[in-house]
Computed example of a mutant assay.
Amino acid sequence: MELTTMKTRIATSSSTSLRGLKLAALALGSSLVLAGCAGNPPTEQFAVTQSAVNSAVSSGGTEFAAVEMKAAQDKLKQAEIAMHDKKYDDAKMLAEQAEWDARVAERKAQAAKAEKAVKDAHEGVQDVRDEGMRSAQ
């Protein structure tokens, strides 16, 4: 009977240490994976963001959505600084925010231009009506 108890104790302690070893290996592996992700510069996001900012500028964002354009450009500069400091997670987050600010500026500029075109068209129609009324009299 004593022999059986001894085997049980040995088996329990070895499975406990094996479980601890597995957990340690899992923790180490997870931290290496996370460290690997944090170490990659977000160059693709920077390219997308720069393209969005350029597109917003081309569509008149600086004129029709100055606040959003300034926010996009400021965040892009902050992202570049974070990238230089190798703070890649911060750089990616700021670049994403800059991209969306630029997209908002572009849409706002497009909406403002469309609104102006509609207003000009209404004025043109009114001018034609006025001219028609004058010639009818």
Rank of each mutant, 00 (worst) to 15 (best):
L3C: 00
T4N: 07
M6F: 02
M6V: 01
M6E: 08
R9T: 02
T12R: 02
S13V: 07
S15P: 00
T16R: 12
T16D: 00
T16K: 10
R19Y: 10
R19C: 11
R19N: 12
G20Y: 09
G20M: 13
G20L: 11
L21K: 08
K22C: 05
K22H: 13
L23P: 05
A24N: 10
A24P: 02
L26N: 13
L28V: 15
L28W: 05
G29V: 09
S30D: 02
S30M: 04
S30W: 02
L32T: 05
L32V: 09
V33K: 01
V33A: 13
L34D: 02
C37E: 07
G39T: 02
P41F: 08
P41G: 06
P41M: 03
P42V: 11
P42L: 01
T43A: 09
T43S: 12
T43V: 14
E44K: 11
E44P: 00
Q45P: 01
F46K: 13
V48F: 07
T49C: 12
T49L: 04
S51M: 10
A52M: 02
A52R: 07
V53T: 14
V53P: 09
V53D: 01
N54V: 08
N54K: 13
S55Q: 13
A56P: 08
S59N: 12
G60S: 00
T62L: 06
E63K: 04
E63P: 08
E63C: 03
F64Q: 09
F64C: 10
A65L: 01
A65I: 12
A66R: 07
V67A: 15
V67P: 05
M69R: 01
A71F: 03
A72P: 01
A72D: 02
A72G: 04
Q73E: 08
D74E: 10
K75G: 06
K75W: 11
K75M: 10
K77I: 07
A79I: 14
M83H: 11
D85H: 05
K86E: 15
K87F: 04
K87L: 05
K87H: 05
Y88K: 01
Y88N: 02
D90C: 03
K92D: 09
L94V: 01
E96F: 09
A98K: 05
E99A: 09
E99D: 14
E99F: 03
E99G: 00
D101E: 04
A102N: 05
A102W: 00
R103S: 09
V104A: 11
R107K: 11
K108S: 13
K108M: 11
A109Q: 03
Q110K: 14
A111P: 00
A114N: 06
A117H: 04
V118K: 14
K119P: 02
A121M: 02
A121N: 04
H122P: 00
H122A: 13
H122W: 08
E123L: 09
G124C: 00
G124Q: 01
Q126D: 12
Q126N: 13
Q126V: 13
D127I: 05
D127H: 08
D127Q: 13
V128F: 05
V128Q: 07
R129N: 07
G132R: 06
R134W: 06
S135Y: 05
